[in-house]
Amino acid sequence: MIEQKVYFEDVQEGQEIPTLTVLCDSQRLVMWAAGSGDFYQIHYDKDFALGNGLPERIVHGALKHALLGRMLHEWIAPGGRIKRVACQYRGMDLVDKNVICKGVVTKKYQQDGQNIVELDVWTESEDGQKTTPGTAVVVLPSRGQ
């Protein structure tokens, strides 16, 4: 059984949430292709990627979106729920590098009986470039519940 690690009362604006680092090697990208159904060759065929003017195979944007979702899930599970994850793919992440997911709480409030927490979320490349800036909304359980 997974223990609840975070409750609404524990969260403060400005607080960083636990980082998630994932190596996006070719195996991960192929697993993503199968899992997502996105078989665009720029993600697993190097010749095809170079032929499209790219420097290498690139990490799927939607995989980075899903990794941000995993970071949030692992922070709020089992009692929390993700309401929204939004991000923009500003920079390319190349195959065989770590994608580092981060988040900071920007706002917390109660609305319609729900404990709502808003965050800035983003991915960074190994050299510290913010390649995927975004925002998220989650609902957290209360200690009193």
């Binding site: 997974i2 994932v22 991960r28 697993m31 993503w32 199968a34 899992g35 997502s36 939607a62 995989l63 979106h65 899903a66 990794l67 979702g69 995993r70 949030l72 899930h73 692992e74 599970a77 089992p78 993700i82 994850v85």
Partner: peptide, 29 residues
């Protein structure tokens, strides 16, 4: 593919214990 280890995404009984109707769609899916 996303690298989850939480059994809620693999084991239907665990998902039901946690209040889901069945295995939940992972975020993004």
């Amino acid at each position: 593919a996303v690298g989850y280890t939480d059994p809620v995404f693999y084991d239907e009984e665990e998902a039901k214990r946690r209040g889901y109707r069945s295995i939940p769609a992972p975020p993004g899916f």
